[in-house]
Simulated assay, not measured.
Amino acid sequence: MDPISLQSPFKPIQTAKLQSEPISSGEAQESFKSLLSHALSEVNSMQNESSKKTEDLALGKPVELHDVMITGQKASVSLQATIEIRNKVVEAYQEMMRMQV
């Protein structure tokens, strides 16, 4: 039986260090782009793993039901977190666009 490990697709956000010197706009964009790309690829890999285990279970391959359920829940939670983060980013963008200069 494998121990349950809590993996977050947003781990780079949690372990990011604050920089003492300012970075350029281009560097910030590239950093954000790579962070977002990494997080989305992690969510995608969780979704793919869940689909594969579900398919293996349906085909009658030797897969434990609890593993399939845990993998599915991990994928679901990570997708929901990603959707909520997207919603907050869109909301922040819309709020900035409503600001008067």
Score class of each variant (00 low, 15 high):
residue 28 A to Y: 01
residue 8 S to I: 03
residue 101 V to M: 13
residue 95 E to Y: 08
residue 1 M to W: 00
residue 68 V to P: 04
residue 50 S to D: 14
residue 79 L to R: 11
residue 23 I to R: 12
residue 29 Q to K: 14
residue 55 E to I: 10
residue 23 I to S: 13
residue 22 P to L: 04
residue 101 V to E: 15
residue 36 L to A: 06
residue 25 S to N: 06
residue 53 K to F: 14
residue 51 S to R: 11
residue 92 A to E: 06
residue 22 P to T: 05
residue 5 S to M: 02
residue 73 Q to A: 06
residue 40 L to H: 03
residue 53 K to P: 01
residue 36 L to Q: 00
residue 82 T to W: 08
residue 79 L to V: 10
residue 72 G to K: 08
residue 23 I to L: 10
residue 35 L to K: 03
residue 67 D to W: 07
residue 63 V to M: 02
residue 42 E to D: 11
residue 58 A to D: 02
residue 27 E to R: 06
residue 13 I to G: 02
residue 22 P to N: 05
residue 60 G to I: 09
residue 23 I to F: 04
residue 2 D to V: 06
residue 25 S to K: 09
residue 63 V to F: 01
residue 95 E to W: 07
residue 51 S to H: 05
residue 98 R to N: 07
residue 84 E to H: 12
residue 83 I to H: 09
residue 20 S to G: 09
residue 80 Q to T: 15
residue 56 D to W: 08
residue 73 Q to H: 03
residue 1 M to I: 02
residue 47 Q to K: 14
residue 30 E to N: 11
residue 23 I to K: 11
residue 20 S to W: 01
residue 50 S to Q: 12
residue 33 K to Y: 07
residue 24 S to E: 03
residue 90 V to I: 12
residue 51 S to M: 05
residue 16 A to Q: 08
residue 74 K to L: 12
residue 58 A to H: 03
residue 96 M to E: 13
residue 75 A to K: 06
residue 48 N to T: 10
residue 32 F to H: 05
residue 54 T to D: 00
residue 99 M to Y: 04
residue 57 L to C: 04
residue 30 E to G: 02
residue 43 V to S: 00
residue 55 E to A: 12
residue 58 A to L: 11
residue 18 L to H: 02
residue 75 A to D: 04
residue 87 N to T: 11
residue 29 Q to V: 01
residue 18 L to W: 02
residue 57 L to N: 10
residue 1 M to E: 06
residue 24 S to V: 01
residue 99 M to L: 12
residue 96 M to T: 07
residue 29 Q to D: 09
residue 82 T to R: 05
residue 40 L to A: 07
residue 56 D to T: 01
residue 54 T to M: 08
residue 95 E to F: 06
residue 65 L to Q: 11
residue 36 L to N: 05
residue 67 D to V: 14
residue 61 K to T: 03
residue 88 K to Q: 10
residue 66 H to P: 00
residue 9 P to D: 08
residue 21 E to F: 00
residue 98 R to Q: 09
residue 93 Y to M: 14
residue 9 P to W: 07
residue 23 I to Y: 05
residue 41 S to W: 06
residue 2 D to H: 10
residue 58 A to W: 01
residue 50 S to N: 12
residue 81 A to M: 11
residue 85 I to R: 08
residue 59 L to Y: 14
residue 99 M to F: 07
residue 95 E to I: 02
residue 89 V to C: 07
residue 27 E to T: 06
residue 56 D to P: 00
residue 23 I to H: 08
residue 44 N to P: 00
residue 93 Y to I: 15
residue 36 L to K: 01
residue 72 G to E: 01
residue 15 T to C: 03
residue 50 S to P: 10
residue 77 V to N: 15
residue 65 L to P: 01
residue 64 E to C: 00
residue 28 A to R: 08
residue 60 G to H: 10
residue 87 N to R: 11
